[in-house]
């Protein structure tokens, strides 16, 4: 384990060859933005929008096109080339990125822009000292202050950050820069203590045991109608979710010249599955809410062997009418028990 003084972080950021994203104050909370010389805010807990937006931008050009007489000229957008460093993401969001990897970097097709960016991304995870009341990462087997497989895990000890590399790439970077010193034994045990204590601060629990199997049996249960009743069908939960990956493809053009781009889309929107002939397989919010919960709790496990939820709590924190996935899971468990 290595240590770096917080005052030396600007030197670290400057030494990194690529674009460095750090947490910044944004709106009534925090967000990730390219480092501009300011150090990150000390009271930062987690960002409103997850760092998925760095790897999977909300809007991204695919190609530009030009109609030339009968012809179409297509010019693919130049992909992202610059290496990306995300400094200070939380273990839940690290997991979120790993889950997006399963979607975008696996299966018969790779998602080229995501994969290209991801191959060039270095993730520097900062352990949480304390969870928020809406955090329930431990329910999904995550730890608030440690992310297995992260390039770096870091712990904030006040004056210094402790760094432990978790990948070959992580070790190489740590060894290659002269900004670090070996951590003292005292510091290492402090970090371990922080890690253990952080776990205890996660009080919210979601009952995950057997939920997938239970939901498989209850697709038509009246509970769905009840749960969906208060949903307003906005997309806040999905856009702020670190694992939601749905997107739309759209064009914008003037006089036959324009761009095709992709942008986030939400399964909560009324026209999301609407077909050209007018048929909609998910016509009301009962089906839409059901799809969102099942995607996370049943389909993701069926397809990838992992839950599509990391317990970051953003959806419960930000839903205008306080829909709560943990409460839903508890309700569903009750229903299944009967």
């Amino acid at each position: 384990m290595k240590a770096i003084s917080k005052t030396a972080l600007p030197d670290l950021f400057a030494a990194l060859k690529g674009r460095v994203y750090v947490p910044v104050r944004e709106g009534k909370g925090f967000g990730f933005a390219p480092w501009d010389g300011e150090i990150w805010p000390a009271d930062y807990q987690n960002t409103i929008v997850p760092p998925k937006q760095i790897l999977f931008p909300q809007t991204e050009d695919l190609y530009s096109f030009r109609m030339e007489g009968e012809d179409i000229a297509i010019d693919p957008a130049s992909g992202p080339e610059e290496p990306i460093f995300i400094f200070g993401l939380r273990p839940c969001d690290h997991k979120g990125i790993e889950l997006l990897d399963l979607v975008f970097r696996q299966g018969p097709y790779l998602d080229a822009p995501y994969s290209k960016r991801r191959d060039n991304t270095f993730l520097m995870v900062l352990g949480c000292k304390e969870g928020l009341p809406t955090c329930f990462c431990t329910s999904f087997g995550l730890e608030p202050a440690f992310a297995p497989g992260a390039d770096w895990n870091m712990w904030d000890l006040g004056e210094v950050l402790l760094i432990e590399p978790g990948t070959a790439k992580g070790k190489e970077l740590l060894d290659g820069l002269e900004l670090f010193r070996e951590a003292t034994e005292e510091e290492v045990s402090q970090a371990k203590k922080l890690r253990d204590e952080a776990r205890e601060t996660i009080t919210l629990q979601a009952p995950v045991e057997g939920i997938t199997e239970g939901l498989q049996e209850n697709f038509e249960h009246p509970l769905w109608e009840e749960v969906a009743r208060k949903c307003l069908e906005c997309g806040a939960c999905t856009y702020l979710c670190p694992t939601c990956h749905c997107y739309d493809l759209q064009s914008t053009s003037v006089l036959g010249q324009g761009k095709r781009f992709r942008c986030w889309d939400s399964c909560m929107y009324c026209n999301y599955t609407l077909m050209a002939g007018g048929h909609n397989p998910r016509p009301t919010k009962r089906e839409r809410v059901r799809n969102r919960f099942l995607h996370k709790l049943q389909y993701f496990p069926e397809n990838h062997g992992e839950f599509g939820c990391v317990g970051c709590g953003r959806c419960l924190q930000n839903c205008p009418v306080h829909m709560d996935i943990t409460r839903f899971m508890a309700q569903a468990k009750d229903v299944m028990a009967k």
């Binding site: 944004e26 709106g27 967000g31 929008v49 909300q58 307003l232 069908e233 906005c234 997309g235 806040a236 999905t238 856009y239 702020l240 986030w264 939400s266 929107y269 205008p320 009418v321």
Partner: peptide, 12 residues
């Protein structure tokens, strides 16, 4: 520039 167009403002 922060707006993510989740339409929560409209839907409430």
């Amino acid at each position: 520039s922060r707006c993510i167009r989740c339409y929560a403002c409209r839907n409430v």
